[in-house]
Each structure stands twice: as C-alpha cells, then as structure tokens.
Amino acid sequence: MKEKRFLSLILLITTLSLSAQVKGIVKDNSTGEPIPFVNIWVENVNIGTTTEIDGTFSINVKEKDKKLIISVLGYETQTLKQAEFMNIELTPKLYELNDVVVLMKKQSKYLEIGNVDQTLMQAFDNGPKVEAKYFPYDSKYKKLKFIKKVTIFTDCRIDSSSVKIRFFSVDSLGNPGYELLNKDFIVTIKKGVIKHKFDVSEFNLTMPTNGIFVAYEKLLISDNRTPKGYQPYVLYNNVDRDFYFVFSGGKWNKLINNEDPLEQISINEPAINLILTN
C-alpha cells in the first residue's frame, strides 16, 4: 500500500511539473491601455484563450518549454517564452492607408452565396480553433462585387454572446493570406437557433477575383462561459470539399484527403454565407 501511494505521489508531482496555469495582462506599449479579445495560442498545440475586456487572461501550459503566440488585429504578433507571460506589451501595427474613394452603390440587387444542398445542420463546440469557409469567385459576381452582409447560423444557450468574424485574402498558394480588415469585427449573438445577418458595408469589402476566406472565432471570455463550454455554438453543414483550413496552435493547417489528395474529403463546414450587392 505504501509503495502504491508513493508511486501516486510521484505521478502527481510529475503532472504538476508539466502543467502550469499562466496568468497575465496584455497592453498597448504606446498607451498602456489593456487590449481586449487578443488571441493567445500555445505554439503548435490546440490550446488557446482570449483576453477579457480588461486585457487579462489565464491559460494552462502543459509543458514548460512551450511558447505562446500573441496576436490581434492592429498589433504586431509576438511569440514569447513562459517567463515573459505576466506582462505583455504589443506594438501597434502601422498601416499605409489608401486614398478613400466614395463609391455610389446602387444596392438594387442582392445575391446570397455560400448555400449548400445539405440543409441538415449540427452544432459543435469547436474550442479555441478558428475555422474558415472558402468562397470561390464566379464571373456572375462581376456586377455584384460589394459584400453587403455576412450571415452566420448559431445556437446560443445564453441571452447573448459575442464572436469575432474575420475576412482573409487568398494567397498565391490558395491559403488564407492577410486579413482584409484593420480592426476586429465583434458581433453579438442572441439566444436561440437563429440565422444572424450582420452589415459589413462600412468596410467597403469587394469580392476578390481569387476568392475569399471568411472565418469565425469563438471568444473564450467569462461573458461567454457556461458550465458546458463557451457560447455560442455555430451550426455546421456536412459537405465534401477539396480542402479545409483550420487555424490552431498559432498557424493555419490545411486538411486534405491524405489517402488520395485528388479526392474530396467530408468535413463539417460552418454555416456562414455572404450577401453581395451592386
């Protein structure tokens, strides 16, 4: 019995030594103001969190030598060792602003894109991952090039919750490239099973001729937390695709059919659509 207790004690000590809860705060290094909704990822591992409104965060790091990747729109991304976690200061990113062009939009025609034949949808708790839906370009979008709204189908179990919606260009390899917005687009999700529509006209987004990736990011903050996980649940369609992109561990991961790359794979794709206008 003593030997068994001794082995259990060794196992407990080993487990504690390999796992630690790191707490800290993320601030703007030029103003000292806390930065909310910052993405914090354990490098190469599907463990992540989000800073609260006051910039604070808490994350479990299982191995001492793991690094954290800190990123948010408008600031330079940092990769830090554990010793640097307590106080994190991000440097604002400088953008070269183009001349503002005011375009006269008729907005007399609308086209919703992204619908799939498979209407059966399921809700999943995707954890800290960011999952992107790819919208390829079609010649019929030439006269409907402005992105008017983004829609997202959710099942929310609390009165309201928040998610971040992100737009990415397509790089030369067909992967998600740079973000098309220069500030976070945080939306409020209401309770119930609802198809939400959010107007994005203010961003003056147009449909790129090589397509666009649209992703949602669940905010792992206290206001979204429930005993059964974070809200909201986003609904997914089961579809066949050539590829699928998931952001995890601080980087984009491309999922393909490993057995036969020329064959499609069956995936659960978030029920996100775009509404185009002229």
Results as ranks from 00 to 15, higher is better:
residue 138 D to W: 03
residue 69 I to A: 01
residue 144 L to Q: 01
residue 87 N to F: 02
residue 139 S to T: 12
residue 91 T to R: 08
residue 112 E to N: 10
residue 164 K to V: 03
residue 68 L to K: 04
residue 91 T to K: 10
residue 131 E to Q: 15
residue 122 Q to T: 10
residue 140 K to Q: 14
residue 134 Y to L: 00
residue 167 F to L: 02
residue 155 D to K: 05
residue 171 D to M: 01
residue 98 N to Q: 13
residue 128 P to R: 06
residue 162 S to H: 13
residue 100 V to P: 03
residue 144 L to N: 06
residue 119 T to S: 11
residue 100 V to L: 14
residue 103 L to D: 14
residue 68 L to C: 01
residue 138 D to R: 14
residue 129 K to H: 10
residue 129 K to L: 12
residue 151 T to A: 05
residue 72 V to Y: 02
residue 93 K to E: 11
residue 83 A to F: 14
residue 145 K to V: 12
residue 156 C to N: 07
residue 110 Y to I: 07
residue 74 G to D: 03
residue 154 T to C: 13
residue 142 K to S: 15
residue 150 V to M: 04
residue 73 L to D: 02
residue 110 Y to A: 08
residue 90 L to M: 13
residue 172 S to F: 04
residue 132 A to S: 11
residue 133 K to Y: 06
residue 101 V to W: 01
residue 139 S to Q: 11
residue 78 Q to Y: 09
residue 162 S to N: 15
residue 82 Q to M: 15
residue 67 K to V: 03
residue 127 G to K: 09
residue 136 P to R: 08
residue 73 L to N: 07
residue 128 P to Q: 05
residue 165 I to L: 15
residue 172 S to A: 10
residue 111 L to R: 08
residue 130 V to W: 03
residue 119 T to Y: 13
residue 155 D to A: 05
residue 86 M to R: 10
residue 70 I to Q: 04
residue 133 K to C: 06
residue 68 L to A: 02
residue 136 P to T: 09
residue 155 D to S: 08
residue 169 S to N: 11
residue 86 M to T: 12
residue 121 M to V: 12
residue 89 E to K: 11
residue 146 F to D: 05
residue 166 R to W: 00
residue 120 L to S: 06
residue 92 P to Q: 02
residue 116 V to C: 07
residue 170 V to F: 10
residue 134 Y to M: 00
residue 149 K to H: 10
residue 139 S to D: 14
residue 65 D to R: 07
residue 113 I to T: 11
residue 158 I to W: 02
residue 120 L to T: 07
residue 76 E to A: 07
residue 112 E to L: 09
residue 125 D to G: 09
residue 152 I to D: 03
residue 75 Y to E: 04
residue 117 D to S: 15
residue 157 R to G: 14
residue 160 S to F: 11
residue 112 E to C: 08
residue 96 E to R: 15
residue 132 A to P: 01
residue 118 Q to L: 08
residue 167 F to S: 00
residue 81 K to L: 11
residue 81 K to A: 08
residue 164 K to H: 14
residue 91 T to G: 01
residue 138 D to Q: 14
residue 74 G to F: 01
residue 120 L to N: 09
residue 98 N to K: 15
residue 147 I to A: 01
residue 155 D to E: 09
residue 137 Y to H: 11
residue 97 L to Q: 14
residue 89 E to Y: 02
residue 155 D to R: 00
residue 141 Y to G: 06
residue 169 S to H: 01
residue 70 I to E: 02
residue 153 F to N: 00
residue 137 Y to G: 07
residue 131 E to P: 02
residue 69 I to R: 05
residue 170 V to T: 01
residue 129 K to M: 12
residue 161 S to P: 09
residue 73 L to Q: 08
residue 116 V to N: 08
residue 146 F to S: 04
residue 96 E to P: 04
residue 77 T to Y: 06
residue 142 K to N: 15
residue 97 L to C: 00
residue 98 N to S: 15
residue 105 K to P: 10
residue 138 D to A: 13
residue 124 F to A: 05
residue 166 R to A: 08
residue 120 L to E: 07
residue 107 Q to D: 14
residue 101 V to Q: 13
residue 87 N to D: 14
residue 148 K to W: 00
residue 172 S to V: 13
residue 67 K to A: 04
residue 65 D to C: 03
